[in-house]
Design a protein around this nucleic acid. Structure first.
Lengths: 221, 221
DNA sequence: TGTACATCAGTGAACGCGCGTTCACTGATGTAC
DNA sequence: TGTACATCAGTGAACGCGCGTTCACTGATGTAC
């Protein structure tokens, strides 16, 4: 669907057959990026997109479910990487919290297909189904720590960091996913909205900060 | 899937053939309530659940898409009714805003299948795709008005009601839909969370109100 | 250097299945005379 | 009151399709001697 046939695919050199695994996951990623719901992705469709016969998938994956599971895991890791990169590049906890939240929303908005499969996915494929110990739990802990640091720095309003993070996460998710399902709604600019909601939930004065490098010691609400 | 065969279905009396329309929509509703994604609902499955042969669907609907469109519309109307009933029963604007928001989240949490099809739906079936003039726009306007009334009453923090409503809606959506996709997360009680987030976004002191009947004239933040 | 063989990436054909849709039909119920 | 006919709700069989999966295979590349 996304990419046409464009000639024959050369077979991988001997000993490198497992390269096909990456090719298949990339093909699935292309289908997802072009709007396919995870429910409607077919093994044959992925093989077609990868330029390979359907049975070849079984050289790398036990069955369709294993393929989709690998795809979901890969996209989950990509989201996490996007957040951590942006967040770690910030100069302090206050900026780090904002950057992490922005990275989350921007990933979701810019790669909606990829984000979507993480949350609108059959339960069995969802890594969050068992939350404790999952990769999702680790990512969430990063958010809790970020909030705690801002409270400790005296910039965020005092409160239970876990509880505050439990309010922030759904808010970010809602912002990002409604922009996908209701694209015609007159949404405010993404960064404005994230800033103002973070300010409301944490008390950190994000809304007027032209940027974040010097927000370290403003008063708290 | 949801209901077994349980004997033969009597045919409708002459002139009442269109009752089948309601039976089919009810059957689809049962499939959705039992966890079916809108993407995976089949015309044959709905007919089976209704106890009717597959071609009978065509007596009431032009094709599969028309059936699904009618189902989506029906569930959208049900959500709207749930909100308006609860909201209209409140004694004042401040209680009405809370009750409407609670009704929204509770509908989404208690009937996740029904809520889900409104937002994780192929674009062509989504009534929000054209937002202006849609039923969704009307429901959103109710939220805007509720916020404006609370500001006018001097209870909510001053601000742009449209913009505040644009923050509230995604928040409610996020709260409800993450509870569905990550049920093992230790979420706070739904009403607590709605109250505290509404308080953060509007300044209305919802968090400590044991109930809402007497919150009319508290100070603003 | 030449040859037999093993290894390995990948395939074509076939399977049984459920799908959306069409078609000609069945048989009960109401109406005209 | 009896009978022919029209109307109407609903059906069974068939269509072509794409699906996930299996099986026996092909043919290129490397290795042993």
């Amino acid at each position: 669907v996304a990419t046409s046939d464009r000639g024959v695919r050369p077979r991988n050199p001997q000993g490198e057959g497992s390269r096909l695994r990456q090719e298949l996951m990339a093909a699935a990623g292309r289908l997802i990026a072009s709007g396919a719901d995870v429910e409607t992705i077919s093994l044959r469709g992925v093989a077609r997109e990868a330029g390979v016969a359907a049975p070849s998938v079984y050289l790398q994956f036990a069955n369709k479910e294993a393929l989709l599971q690998a795809v979901v895991d890969e996209h989950f890791a990509a989201l996490r990487r996007a957040i951590e990169t942006r967040s770690a590049a910030a100069p302090d906890a206050v900026a780090g919290l904002l950057m992490g939240c922005l990275a989350y929303c921007q990933y979701a908005v810019e790669q909606p297909g990829s984000y979507r499969i993480l949350f609108s996915t059959p339960r069995r494929l969802n890594p969050d189904a068992e939350f404790a110990g999952s990769e999702g739990a680790a990512a969430f802990q990063t958010l809790v720590d970020g909030v705690a640091d801002c409270i400790a720095a005296g910039v965020a309003r005092p409160g239970d960091p876990f509880r505050i993070a439990s309010d922030i996460w759904p808010t970010l998710h809602g912002i990002a996913s409604l922009r996908y399902s209701s694209p015609d709604f007159p949404w405010p600019p993404l960064e404005d909205q994230v800033r103002s909601i973070l300010e409301a939930l944490t008390g950190i004065p994000y809304r007027d900060g032209s940027d974040v490098e010097e927000t370290d010691d403003r008063g708290t609400a």
